[in-house]
Design a protein around this nucleic acid. Structure first.
Lengths: 167, 167
DNA sequence: ATCATAAGTTAGCCTAGGGAAACTTTTTCA
DNA sequence: TGAAAAAGTTTCCCTAGGCTAACTTATGAT
């Protein structure tokens, strides 16, 4: 009995969200990385950005132009990339969101794939959900005894739940 | 100082994962929905699937053919859609993953957007992460006192953290 | 049994975002 | 200062997964 909730495919959701000057996941990745670099050096260039994001310069060039059009970047051909105030605010949000997700994944015991999964998940969290995760993170950080219990619970989990078809 | 971690854009990750018979997010959505329907009625048809996923029949037809090629479905032109054993196993996994994410979001207090975000996030979680979230869910379910503390912590959060630039 | 309608498929188009290759601009340095 | 190298851009191509329109197959009612 699943009620009459509205399902959409992943792509469908993306299309729904895509109006106005909505940032796509890729654009968010670019902006986040630009923000990181501008924090350190005040600006960044296409080649460096492309290198850090593991894409080709041609792709970076294209996307940076889009971000500039939307008003997140100060950029003109062959020049350096800087954030506008708008871009600065957005970048700070994106980085914070990233760190929130990353911290959460570490809290629950994800190890090797933290960065990979953070990058994938972060784009799809609403502001509200990020906030809720942030609260959970803080709650756990401030409650070492709870974290301890969780670790204990986790350690015993496999004993209580043997692999399916086990025995 | 962020070390020399490897960043990729969202798209880049997708491309990395995309080898072999990897299911794309859309294909996962289709398979999950097919699984839900087959649980209830044993089979499903293109038109019903398209309706439930809010896509056109032409799109559903295309994707179903792909899923059949990969061996998840028993399907031939104009016929009914059934799961193969392989598809059954995959579908069960997908549904479980979905429910795990959904339960987690509810635990942390996400309300209105639960379905939307579940659909978006689920595709990007590794098996390991799903398992960790599952453990967290169980832990919380089994520890009403912790959940109570979390709710309390959350209730007080805004007092301790006034909106940015507040005052 | 036939024919209208419903269901499904195919072909062709669109978009984002990747890449390669060719071209242009900028920088460097002898 | 001028030529080679590096950096950036443009054009064109590819893929997935939507869509529409046109076509094909299946169904059901008389």
């Amino acid at each position: 009995m699943m009620g009459n909730k509205e399902f959409h495919t992943f792509r469908g959701y993306e299309i729904i969200k895509k109006n106005k000057e909505h940032l796509t996941p890729s654009m968010e990745d670019y902006l986040e990385m630009i923000y990181r670099n501008c924090q350190e050096e005040g600006y960044v260039r296409i080649s460096k950005l492309a290198e850090k994001l593991n894409v080709k310069a041609s792709s970076a060039s294209k996307t940076v132009s889009k971000l500039a059009e939307i008003g997140h970047l100060d950029y003109e051909k062959y020049g350096i990339i800087r954030l506008t105030t708008k871009g600065e605010i957005m970048g700070a949000f994106l980085l914070d969101r990233h760190e929130t997700v990353e911290a959460f994944l570490r809290h629950i015991g994800v190890l090797d794939t933290v960065l990979l999964e953070t990058e994938l998940i972060e784009h799809y969290l609403s502001i509200d959900t990020v906030k809720n995760i942030k609260i959970l993170n803080e709650f756990l950080t401030n409650s070492p005894e709870v974290l301890e219990k969780l670790r204990h619970f986790k350690a015993n989990y496999d004993d209580r739940n043997p692999p399916a078809c086990g025995r």
